[in-house]
C-alpha cells in the first residue's frame, strides 16, 4: 500500500491509499465530529456531521469525511463558517427527534444549536443505523432492520428473531446516541408477545404516536 500526502487544515498529512479523510485526520489528532461512525462497522455516511470541505480539481465541495478516500494533494478543511452552519442545522434537525440525547447536547453546545428550533418530532430515532448495522455486521443476527423510506423511515425489530436473540445480547443498546433504543425494543417485545396470548402479531415502532404529516 502506498502512502498519499494530503493537506488537512493546513497540515501535511500522510495516509495510506484507500484510507478515508476521517481516518487520516484522526491519525494526526485532528478531531472531526461523528455520530453514525463506528470503528467496527463499514462507514455509513448518514449523519453528515463529519462533513468537511475539500478542494478537488479546482472545485470546492462538501463531502462526508467518513467515506471520502484520501487523494494525493487533496486539500481538506475540517472547520469553516459554512461547515459550522451545516453542522448546527443538522444538529437542530436531529434534536427535534432526540432533545435529551447527551451526545447531541454536547455537540449542540459546541455549534450553538438550538434544540427547540424545529418542532418536536414523535420519533426519537436519528437513523444513525448503528444498531441495525452492528447487529448485521458484527453479530450477524439481523434482528432488526429499517423499514420504509424518506421521512417515514424507521427501525424495526423482527420479533421472531429478537425474542430469541436480543435479551442475551443487548450490545446495540449502548451504541444508540439517543439512549432510546432500549425503550423501543422493550415496547416492541411487549406489544409483539403479550405474555397472556403469545400472539405473534408484528408491531413496529412506527406504530408509536403517528406523526401528522406536514404538520
Amino acid at each position: 500500500m502506498s502512502e498519499v500526502l494530503l493537506q488537512i487544515d493546513g497540515k501535511e498529512v500522510s495516509a495510506i491509499e484507500g484510507a478515508t479523510i476521517l481516518e487520516a485526520a484522526r491519525s494526526v489528532g485532528i478531531i472531526i465530529p461523528t455520530l453514525c461512525h463506528h470503528e467496527k462497522l463499514e462507514p455509513y455516511g448518514g449523519c453528515r456531521i463529519c462533513s468537511v470541505e475539500v478542494d478537488v480539481r479546482g472545485r470546492t465541495s462538501v463531502v462526508a469525511s467518513c467515506l471520502f478516500p484520501v487523494e494525493k494533494d487533496l486539500v481538506v478543511r475540517t472547520v469553516s463558517k459554512k461547515l459550522d452552519r451545516i453542522r448546527k442545522s443538522l444538529l437542530e434537525m436531529m434534536l427535534a427527534h432526540a432533545p435529551d440525547s447527551e451526545q447531541l447536547q454536547v455537540l449542540a453546545q459546541e455549534y450553538g444549536a438550538d434544540r427547540e428550533r424545529f418542532g418536536k418530532e414523535a420519533s426519537f430515532c436519528i437513523h444513525c443505523g448503528l444498531c441495525v448495522r452492528y447487529c448485521a455486521e458484527v453479530k450477524k443476527k439481523d434482528a432488526l432492520g429499517f423499514i420504509d423510506r424518506g421521512a417515514r423511515k424507521e427501525i424495526c425489530f423482527i420479533p421472531e428473531i429478537a425474542s430469541r436473540e436480543c435479551w442475551e445480547c443487548k450490545e446495540c443498546f449502548p451504541l444508540c446516541p439517543t439512549s432510546a433504543l432500549q425503550a423501543a425494543f422493550v415496547l416492541c417485545k411487549a406489544l409483539s408477545f403479550p405474555p397472556e396470548t403469545g400472539s405473534q402479531e408484528e408491531v413496529n415502532i412506527s406504530t408509536l404516536p403517528v406523526r401528522e404529516q406536514n404538520d
Binding site: 455509513y44 455516511g45 448518514g46 449523519c47 453528515r48 456531521i49 451545516i86 442545522s89 443538522l90 434537525m93 436531529m94 427535534a96 436519528i126 437513523h127 429499517f146 420504509d148 423510506r149 424518506g150 421521512a151 417515514r152 423511515k153
Partner: peptide
C-alpha cells in the same frame, strides 16, 4: 422519494 439515509435530505427536505 428520499431514501431517508442522510439527515440533510431526510430531515432537511
Amino acid at each position: 422519494e428520499s431514501c431517508g439515509k442522510c439527515v440533510p435530505c431526510r430531515e432537511g427536505v
